[in-house]
């Protein structure tokens, strides 16, 4: 497993359209970097565990309403372009099958530049 903690600068924020993703090569691995409508940025492994192909960055990005402890929450998600399984952009967890998830990465925007950090060991938030 990759253990580098040095951020990889991947592109400028304006190279990612709102509600879409790009694929970046981070420490030899394919990482999908998404930008949401309100300019939040998320990074997930690009590998779709259902379709077993490196494609997630090409999926449609939107929101899904999910009930969390009886309260409706708007979850930003990407639908796999292969078979459309939705993944929570924040946690990488599949919204249809919470047993399945994709790894997430630290990601920051500094001065309009997107940098991806280490793969997260635990699921957040």
């Amino acid at each position: 497993m990759n253990e580098t903690s040095i951020d990889t600068v991947v592109c400028r924020l304006d190279q990612i359209r709102k509600e879409s993703g790009v694929t970046a090569l981070v420490a030899g691995e394919a990482v999908a970097v998404f930008r949401t409508y309100d300019d939040e940025v998320f990074a997930l492994s690009n590998f779709d565990p259902f379709g077993k192909a490196s494609v997630l960055s090409r999926g449609i990005v939107g929101t899904k309403t999910v009930l969390v402890d009886g309260v409706e929450e708007q979850v930003p998600f990407v639908a796999s372009p292969l078979l459309k399984q939705p993944f929570d952009l924040r946690t990488g967890i599949c919204l249809d099958d919470t047993e399945v998830s994709v790894p997430t990465y630290d990601v920051r925007v500094i001065d309009g530049v997107v940098a991806v950090g280490a793969r997260r060991e635990t699921l957040s938030p």
Binding site: E19, I60, G62, T63, K64, T65, Q74
Partner: peptide
């Protein structure tokens, strides 16, 4: 909301 893989296409 912000749409999904059904309404966007």
């Amino acid at each position: 909301g912000r749409g999904c893989d059904i309404c966007k296409p």
